[in-house]
Nucleic acid binder design. Sequence first.
RNA 1: UCUCCCUUAGCUCAGUUGGUUAGAGCAUCUGACUGUUAAUCAGAGGGUCCUAGGUUCGAGUCCUAGAGGGAGAGCCA
Length: 479
Amino acid sequence: MKREKIADILRASEIGKTVLVKGWVRAFRSNRFIQVNDGSTIKNIQAVVDFENFDEAILKRVTTASAVAITGELVESMGAGQAVEIKVTAIEILGDANPDEVQKTVMQPKKHSLEFLREQAHLRFRTNTFGAVFRIRHAVSFAIHKYFNDKGFNYLHTPIITGSDAEGAGEMFRVSTLDAQNPPLNDEGKVDFSQDFFSKPVNLTVSGQLEAELAALALGQVYTFGPTFRAENSNTSRHLAEFWMIEPEVAFNDLKDNMDLTEDFLKYICQYILDNCADDLQFLNDREEKEQQSKPKLERNELTLIERLKFVTENDFIRLTYTEAIDVLRNSKPFKKKKFKYDVAWGVDLHSEHERYLVEKKYKCPVILTDYPAEIKAFYMRQNDDGKTVAAMDVLFPGIGEIVGGSQREERLDILKKKFADFDIPEEDLDWYIDTRKFGTVPHAGFGLGFERMVMFVTGMTNIRDVIPFPRTPGNASF
RNA sequence: UCUCCCUUAGCUCAGUUGGUUAGAGCAUCUGACUGUUAAUCAGAGGGUCCUAGGUUCGAGUCCUAGAGGGAGAGCCA
């Protein structure tokens, strides 16, 4: 007999059919009701056993977390919590689970803290919350590929090991096969990287953007979706040392096109999750609501998780320039009452408190900020006609902060070369990048989306470590 | 890296001005019950009070240092 997935059985609900399910026991109540979950859906199927006429030795081994194969007839349920259930004819124990051991893990029929679950990242997949989070993580990932594929983008694999160290996006992890104890030294007494695997120092990528630009200037529109590494000592609920990033790059797009693409893309992802992950989303929505009740009123979310996703799909993002944002902030109540810790002045980068004010207090809506001062943005961003600002854009989401950073790229060779000089970057480090501005250069634009931050938004999880299966953070690389 | 907070049973937490034998709920085990929905009822077992020093007649409680965790900041996605 062929094993059927619980999701399929519940969807079809063919009363009278004999079915075989395989899964893990979530709870065994009243010596009669076995709750089985096989990961295909957040829903369990209830298997009802006639314990008075059943092998007691088998039932003894039906414990929380054990793996079972259950055969029986699908019948309408007499109870209230479920429409159908399995009237058991046979149980096979596939894998035992010792209750004394189980008790020490997260696999108990009780509520656990997210911190405790995180310590057992290898087991937390078995919980409702993380089952839902990781099914949704998959769906977000798939939606991203589908969106770009439907629009004719090419998925580009940019290198994970990179030889360019001029990307300026943060501290990098060195990759080396040299003996860490006794590295070979050159005449100057420094480490001789000419003897290393790649004959020079190399690092893990912090961004695939520069490489993506090369491909975009030939294939027209590309996107990357891969692991990204930052060796920064960031200890926050929104940073990881290893995370995934999506970086689309489109030839002939200007900043306006770039904003339109970003907004359409983010709305598509939210709509896809609303359409395809209803059960998991509802669970996370209800879970959050329950948790909110224990918080003081001021700290509660005004909208539920599902309402927040709908809000994004149904409303236009607020777009304003950096210069306008400075004006808004300087005229705001917290500025006038000196409630901001950091000053607001043209030329100074905005701080978290300012971004939060704009997104969470003033507009209560995703905000796209554009046209930042050149000094506080990267060298590759296109200089505006005013000579002071660049065609940059940051998309700010409530509760998450910066979820997307992007720009129109500087395509003019002379200005780009000047930028290299201004930023003290030797041209020879990125000669391959400069080359693209010599052979039919065109305006182009792109952005980077932090994948985990997007998953945080659509699941409502508030710590980034809870939306990636095995988080890597300073001092922590377990599993 | 900085600031603040936390660390007591498998988990979540209580523990009074420093004072006898450190508690509760859940979980686990045993028994009862049996159409349950985080089942219920009765009972049992379960403790390096994070670690190392210190103050004190006496420290879970006070002080110092360290470790781990959380929230926020910086950096950013």
